[in-house]
Deep mutational scan, measured.
Amino acid sequence: VTLFVALYDYEAITEDDLSFHKGEKFQILNSSEGDWWEARSLTTGETGYIPSNYVAPVD
């Protein structure tokens, strides 16, 4: 499982989006939707859509 880490803070715009803070880690559930990925936060356990350009793979 490839994990991703937030590079910036993000505040949800719609109820389907997931708010997060810089440094938060995610498991990507679906990355086939283009620039918005469905993800689960490993910090909160919540799922929602995140902007793919706000995250990077964890080394």
Rank of each mutant, 00 (worst) to 15 (best):
Ala56Arg: 10
Glu24Trp: 09
Ser41Gln: 05
Glu46Phe: 11
Gly23Asp: 06
Tyr54Ile: 05
Trp36Gly: 03
Lys25Trp: 13
Asp16Glu: 11
Gly34Met: 12
Gly34Asn: 11
Tyr49Cys: 08
Phe4Tyr: 15
Ala56Asn: 06
Ile28Leu: 06
Gly23Glu: 03
Val55Ala: 04
Thr44His: 04
Leu3His: 09
Glu33Trp: 12
Tyr10Gly: 02
Val5Cys: 06
Asp16Arg: 15
Glu15Cys: 11
Ser32Met: 12
Pro57Ser: 07
Thr44Asn: 06
Tyr8Val: 06
Tyr10Cys: 04
Glu38Tyr: 15
Ala12Lys: 08
Ile50Phe: 01
Ala39Arg: 00
Ser19His: 06
Thr14Trp: 14
Asp9Thr: 06
Leu18Ser: 02
Pro57Trp: 06
Ala6Asp: 00
Pro57Gln: 08
Leu3Met: 10
Gln27Arg: 09
Ile28Trp: 02
Tyr10Asp: 00
Asp17Ala: 15
Ser41Glu: 03
Tyr49His: 08
Phe20Glu: 00
Phe26Val: 03
Ser52Arg: 14
Lys22Val: 10
Gly48Thr: 01
Tyr54Gln: 05
Asn53Phe: 10
Asp16Ile: 14
Pro51His: 09
Thr43Asn: 09
Leu18Asp: 00
Val58Met: 12
Phe20Arg: 00
Asp35Glu: 13
Ala39Ser: 03
Phe4Gln: 03
Tyr10Ile: 01
Asp16Met: 14
Glu46Met: 14
Tyr54Ala: 11
Lys22Gly: 04
Leu42Arg: 03
Leu29Ile: 11
Pro51Ser: 05
Leu7Pro: 01
Thr44Val: 02
Leu29Thr: 06
Gly45Asn: 09
Leu3Ala: 06
Phe20Ile: 05
Gly23His: 04
His21Trp: 08
Thr43Leu: 13
Ala12Ser: 11
Asp35Val: 12
Thr43His: 13
Ala6Lys: 00
His21Glu: 08
Ser52Asn: 06
Gly45Tyr: 07
Tyr49Ile: 08
Ser32Pro: 10
Ile13Met: 14
Asn30Glu: 07
Ser31Gln: 13
Trp37Pro: 01
Glu33Lys: 15
Leu3Tyr: 13
Ile28Asp: 00
Ser41Met: 06
Phe4Leu: 04
Val5Ala: 05
Ala6Arg: 00
Leu7Ile: 10
Leu42Gln: 07
Tyr54Leu: 11
Gly45Met: 08
Asp9Val: 03
Leu29Arg: 05
Val58Thr: 07
Phe20Tyr: 01
Asp59Arg: 09
Thr14Met: 12
His21Ile: 12
Thr47Arg: 10
Thr14Gln: 12
Glu24Ile: 02
Ala39Phe: 03
Ala56Gln: 10
Arg40Cys: 08
Val55Arg: 00
Asp35Gly: 13
Ser41Lys: 15
Glu24Cys: 06
Gly45Gln: 07
Pro57Asp: 04
Glu33Ala: 14
Arg40Asp: 01
Val58Trp: 14
Glu33Tyr: 12
Asp16Thr: 15
Asn53Ser: 15
Gly34Ser: 14
Gly45Thr: 04
Val5Lys: 05
Ser41Pro: 01
Glu33Arg: 15
Val1Phe: 14
Val5Ser: 04
Gly34Trp: 11
Pro51Met: 07
Lys22Glu: 07
Ala39Asn: 00
Glu11Cys: 13
Asp17Gly: 15
Gly34Leu: 12
Ser32Val: 10
Ser19Pro: 05
Val1Ser: 13
Asp17Trp: 15
Leu18Thr: 02
Thr43Ala: 10
Ala12Trp: 02
Ile50Gly: 00
Trp37Val: 06
Val5Phe: 10
Glu11Phe: 10
Gly48Gln: 02
Glu11Pro: 04
Ser52Gln: 07
Leu7Cys: 07
Phe26Asp: 00
Thr14Ser: 15
Ile13Cys: 12
Asp35Ala: 12
Gln27Ile: 15
Trp36His: 08
Ser31Gly: 09
Val5Glu: 07
Lys22Arg: 11
Gly34Asp: 12
Tyr49Asn: 08
Tyr8Glu: 08
Asn30Phe: 07
Asp16Gly: 15
Asp9Ser: 09
Asp17Phe: 15
Leu3Thr: 09
Asp9Ala: 06
Pro57Phe: 06
Asn53Ala: 14
Ala39Trp: 01
Asp16Asn: 15
Glu15Val: 11
Trp36Asp: 03
Pro51Thr: 02
Gly45Trp: 07
Trp37Lys: 03
Tyr54Phe: 10
Thr43Ile: 09
Ile50Cys: 01
Phe26Gly: 00
Ser41Gly: 03
Leu29Gln: 05
Thr2Glu: 10
Ser32Leu: 11
Tyr54Arg: 07
Phe20Gly: 00
Ala6Thr: 02
Asn30Tyr: 07
Glu24Ala: 06
Gly48His: 03
Thr43Ser: 12
Asp16His: 15
Trp37Ala: 02
Ala56Phe: 08
Asp35Cys: 13
Glu46Thr: 08
Ala12Met: 03
Thr47Pro: 02
Glu38Asp: 04
Ala39Cys: 05
Ile28Thr: 02
Asp59Val: 13
Leu3Ser: 05
Ile50Ser: 01
Thr2Gly: 11
Glu24Gly: 02
Asp9Met: 04
Glu15Leu: 11
Thr47Leu: 07
Leu29Ala: 05
Lys22Trp: 05
Trp36Thr: 06
Pro51Tyr: 07
Thr47Lys: 10
Ala12Gln: 06
Ser52His: 08
Tyr49Pro: 02
Ser31Glu: 09
Trp37Glu: 01
Asp16Tyr: 15
Glu33Met: 15
Thr2Asn: 11
Ser32Asp: 11
Ile28Ala: 03
Glu38Ser: 09
Tyr8Arg: 08
Val1Arg: 08
Asp17Met: 15
Leu18Phe: 07
Gly48Val: 02
Val58Phe: 12
Arg40Gln: 09
Glu38Thr: 12
Tyr49Ala: 05
Phe20Cys: 03
Gln27Thr: 10
Glu46Ser: 10
Tyr10Asn: 03
Asp9Asn: 08
Thr14Pro: 03
Asp59Ala: 12
Leu3Gly: 03
Ala56Asp: 05
Leu29His: 05
Asn30Met: 07
Ser19Ala: 06
Val58Asn: 06
His21Lys: 15
Phe20Asp: 00
Pro57Tyr: 06
Gly23Lys: 02
Thr44Asp: 03
Val55Met: 09
Trp36Tyr: 11
Ala56Trp: 09
Glu38Ile: 15
Thr14Asn: 15
Ile28Lys: 04
Asn30Trp: 08
Ser31Phe: 15
Val1Met: 13
Glu15Ile: 11
Asn53Thr: 12
Ser32Gln: 12
Lys25Ala: 07
Gly48Asn: 01
Ile50Arg: 00
Ile13Pro: 08
Glu33Thr: 14
Val58Ala: 10
